[in-house]
Design a protein around this nucleic acid. Sequence first.
DNA 1: CAGTATCCCTCATGATACTG
DNA 2: CAGTATCATGAGGGATACTG
Lengths: 137, 137
Amino acid sequence: MPTKTAAEQREEARAAYDAFVAACPTHRLLARISDKWVSLVLVALADGPRRYNEVARTVASISQKMLTQTLRSLERDGLVSRTVTPSVPVRVDYALTPLGATLLPVMREIKVWAEAHIEEVESARTTYDSAREPAGS
Amino acid sequence: MPTKTAAEQREEARAAYDAFVAACPTHRLLARISDKWVSLVLVALADGPRRYNEVARTVASISQKMLTQTLRSLERDGLVSRTVTPSVPVRVDYALTPLGATLLPVMREIKVWAEAHIEEVESARTTYDSAREPAGS
DNA sequence: CAGTATCCCTCATGATACTG
DNA sequence: CAGTATCATGAGGGATACTG
């Protein structure tokens, strides 16, 4: 064993690449907004502030746990603000911050692409599937 | 029990919302490209066709399993083409399809936002964390 | 070279119950 | 109302070995 095992080399390359990815702003953002719920919650707040339960009703299929967790992470990242009104019962409003609002145009770009091309994607998928499963298993 | 239990109502709302989400092109696309590896693989193919192992080397931290799985799903969706040259050993090239290439501008939008704002996001994160953990646990 | 097949395990998420 | 805490599960993903 002169130099390094394949496993060691692989691990090294991986560490280097992970470092590269960690340094790449694009990928950091992607990792951030690619979360299953983030986009849904952002859209739910696009038209103005909403209370916790309003968001919960808008994104009906989200669990309480995931909603809280998603809102917290967005607040942490400065994309959403959380305002507590200490009435009884307490009232909490969530809203996009100015920074969070700048994400909306990006989301719109995505939406434009989706509306223009999603049909193509899905028909490609159908074609691909029917080519592989001509009839019965 | 006159009408429905809370659980039943919740389930109903959820089903309705899931149907709505399922009908929303934006979200279908988001679900598609929000995959951890998809963006990395697309970027790896941005500059032209690449062989399987070239992609594997570019995206060094991806496992064989995930690479194959990601490429297959992209091929299935018509975003990537797979060309087999039956030499010995066999040679397989992957490339963006014209449809797949139209995603690049969207990715660039994301990149632009990321490069403009990711610093803000991360400093917000630091501020948030330091406010919660002033010193030691 | 370009995969496929298998095992295994962690983590993300959901369901449920409780609280200020 | 707006959460927190706990438990359970199952799908995503990694490591490894084998193949045409």
